[in-house]
Design a protein around this nucleic acid. Structure first.
Lengths: 234, 234
DNA sequence: AAACAGTATTGCGGTTTTGTGACATTTGCA
DNA sequence: TGCAAATGTCACAAAACCGCAATACTGTTT
């Protein structure tokens, strides 16, 4: 599943527990105690999900959530609120402020992970822990393996992410910029043409199992991964 | 990418640098030193994006941003804040005031351009996934594919755009100049006759799936895409 | 039927977009 | 510290695409 998760929680014990659980589940975790610092982190790189304590020193969790929802860049980040109170009115305010889900302390790591998975699945198909199979090519994000006819394909990290994204969003054309946003991250400054090079590396790796035809170029538009062979009526 | 960008920055040196970089990148730049004047310019013509210094004489950048967000006419203009301080509290206020992104001085022209690009891209809703189908011909803009009876038709970028336009405005005659405006772009210096050539290429590609009859010539008027037969009243 | 005006076709030079291999750095790790 | 894998850029080659103009058609008008 491997997502990047930002935890904003001021109680050290809970912070610790959460971070540990998340890391166990192979997530990448960054954490802070307050909204201000969280903003700084987010400004640098966008996480896949934010775990947000309801009660925070300084700016409250609800306000922070609202703020994230307001800014264009952050408005689509999934947010899960953590709260100590099982008070109904909090729940309402929490969801109203734009949270995707809500979890009441005390909670089990198991429950937390389940909710995270659910939210991620809803928001970003490629972050969920799945096995994708298209055109005889199989990618298992849990074991981090790509195979075709039982033969394993060796891929570098970037090529893996690229293929993963393409497979979870197949049949659709993605421009180079879109791929950069989605695969590299939105605040990474890399040339558009770099995508070409990685597409090339990906294709080269797929040649070994005769699946390089899946990655198609759409001139003037970008790239597409498709099981349907590019039929040239002509 | 060529966008119209308004730069609001009071330091002449930085102003200069920014304007130069933006012009290099083919953007149209207008600039002022303060919010009041910026407002005047915006009243006149709406820019595609505003680069806004955080510290301004008179009305502050944050206040100006909030103001832009409040007015209906300007509330969707993307805003990127410029700030000298890497102070988190600024960051918070900056984003809270509704900026789309945030960049800290000193920054490289390269980074600035990248962020502008990212913001503009985020704003422009990627061409909606529309699927048009007429007379057995199917065009899917998300996958960038044209098919008839499951057979794919290979088209170049221009032919694709041309067909897309005709399909989304079918049963209507379009003069060559209209097509040039709509498909090629507003003021592109291209001969009317060139349309003929692309119509020809389009028809040729459609011949392979026996759909070339859809593209009809209306003598003295232009072209039309229609599912109905070209009737010979005789 | 001849002159005309509008349209179809085609070949071609020049551009733009992609593909590819090489190279310099960076990163992680032994 | 030194090595190997991974990455981003570049420069050049290859391919696809564009627009134009010259030429061949077609239907209209006189």
């Amino acid at each position: 599943m491997a997502a990047t998760i930002l935890v904003v929680e001021d109680e050290p014990a809970i912070q610790e527990l959460i971070s540990y659980s998340l890391r166990q589940a192979k997530h990448t975790v960054s954490s802070t105690k307050n909204a201000e610092e969280a903003m700084k982190i987010i400004n640098d790189t966008l996480p896949d999900l934010v775990l947000l304590d309801w009660m925070l020193p300084g700016m409250s969790g609800a306000d922070f959530a609202r703020m994230l929802r307001r800014a264009a860049r952050t408005k689509d980040i999934p947010i899960i609120m953590l709260t100590a109170r099982a008070d109904e009115s909090d729940k309402v305010t929490g969801l109203e402020s734009g949270a995707d889900d809500y979890i009441t302390k005390p909670f089990s790591p198991r429950e937390l992970l389940a909710r995270i998975k659910a939210v991620l699945r809803r928001r970003a198909p490629e972050a969920a822990d799945d096995v994708v199979e298209i055109g005889g090519l199989r990618l298992d994000s849990a074991t981090h393996r790509v195979t075709a006819n039982e033969i394993e394909v060796a891929l570098g990290p970037t090529e893996f992410r690229l293929l993963h994204y393409l497979m979870t969003h197949s049949e659709r054309v993605h421009s180079r910029s879109q791929l950069l946003d989605q695969v590299w991250g939105d605040h990474v400054f890399v040339e558009d043409r770099t995508v070409d090079v990685h597409i090339r590396r990906l294709r080269k790796a797929l040649e070994n199992v005769d699946k390089d035809g899946l990655v198609q170029t759409v001139r003037g538009a970008g790239y597409r991964l498709s099981a349907g062979q590019a039929v040239n009526a002509g």
